[in-house]
Design a protein around this nucleic acid. Structure first.
Lengths: 170, 170
DNA sequence: AATCAAATGTTATATTATAACATCCGCTAG
DNA sequence: CTAGCGGATGTTATAATATAACATTTGATT
């Protein structure tokens, strides 16, 4: 049983996985995809992506703005929103609609639209391909005659790690 | 083949179903549920619900504010947001997270969380219970050990009626 | 009549996002 | 080489969405 004090306040489950690996994989993939696609992962865009990957939590645009200012003194809302637009177009991040926030995408390049499990305790977002769910959705669209452009499948609750750490599962 | 001119601009598919019946059913159900639950469907709340049910489109909070002002001269943002909070708590409306907008719930009282199909052409929102999807989701949560509090399953695209009306399906 | 809770009124402000136009910078057609 | 073009960024302003905090009203209960 892990105690609350053992876990960092900002990154509650950080000790439980090699986060540097998450970051380097995400950045490597992003750099590679941008080269292949002939689009520019400029310094600003790269920095925003890195800031987003600081954790597995969904991050607000204005929080990113605050955090990028030491690096980009001239940064304004448009600076961040343009970078976010680019990163979303390239499938490198998810917009979490129900939080107005953004989180790194672990599966850039393959299937981008995934089930997002959003923990209310630690605020981390877990992506799951959820292939059975996606298949059931496809059948539903066919039945409804609906032509899909984009999906947002977001679920809020308590993740397995927090459920183990806390008894109170509001 | 229906032409564009035949359809109302605001309610493109209104001729295709008895919308008065949608509204009266929704309001009757709401009134009944509130009595049963011992909560107050006050005039403001009732008016907001009626305004939302004016169509099957998702409506913005400030649009509701504009539309309620003739009836409630003193209406301010809080007036609307409080009514919306109440209606959501009672499961009488859905918040469409990906639009920051609101739409009436046809199945208040039974299962509230549903698949929402959101048409980019007519802006109408179709609710579907999508039981296979929900079952697949439940299995996914079990596998992930995730304790669900709420779900938002929102899909954007072109509805079957608009697909029939328009060739250009952006 | 006193009091309490729920709803609403009211003012102010926080948060999220975009519009519009200016500038910079690397590339390439002439 | 240089004029011009497109993409990225800088800059200012403002739009759109949402909440906080405190005052007042109202109807039910004691």
């Amino acid at each position: 049983m892990t105690t609350l004090a053992e876990a960092s306040l900002n990154h509650p489950h950080s000790s439980e996985h090699d986060h540097k690996k998450c970051v380097s994989e995400a950045l490597d993939t992003a750099e590679h995809l941008c080269v292949v696609r002939g689009v520019q992962l400029t310094p600003i865009r790269h920095q925003v992506l890195e800031l987003i990957w600081d954790s597995h939590k969904a991050v607000k645009a204005y929080e990113l703005l605050d955090r990028i200012k030491p690096l980009q003194n001239a940064a304004k809302p448009a600076t961040i929103y343009r970078a976010l637009d680019f990163l979303m177009e390239q499938g490198l991040i998810h917009r979490v609609e129900s939080l107005n926030a953004f989180v790194g995408c672990s599966s850039s390049g393959h299937q981008h639209e995934q089930l997002l499990l959003i923990c209310k305790h630690c605020n981390e977002v877990e992506e799951r391909p959820a292939t059975e769910v996606m298949q059931a959705l496809s059948q539903e669209f066919d039945q409804a005659g609906f032509i899909v452009h984009s999906k947002a499948i977001e679920v809020h609750g308590i993740c397995i790690k927090c459920a183990a750490l806390y008894d109170d599962q509001d």
